[in-house]
Amino acid sequence: MKRFIIEREIPGASGLTTAQLAEIAATSNAAVDSLGVPYTWVNSYVAGDKIYCVHEAEDAETILEHARRGGFPADTVSEVVNEFGSHTAELVVR
């Protein structure tokens, strides 16, 4: 499976209550369950007027299909092609 970062524009996202987030999560879970193809919701981050989600699926189209079924926006869907962090520095051959 491929990993994707999805940017969802939701005005006032930062103000969503826990109850609202729970409802969104339930809807999202139902959408995932309904797909009938491999799909993993890894995590989501609320920031400003946006929600950034990390999902795994075979292709971007499946990411969009999940969004349509959940009634979520999906303004940009980008495949994660690499991952690095502070530890990556150690990989450099001096």
Partner: peptide, 13 residues
């Protein structure tokens, strides 16, 4: 179920 969002991903085809 309330609808929290507007907007919609483009049609797939």
């Amino acid at each position: 179920m309330t609808r929290l969002f507007h907007g919609h991903p483009d049609p797939s085809y």
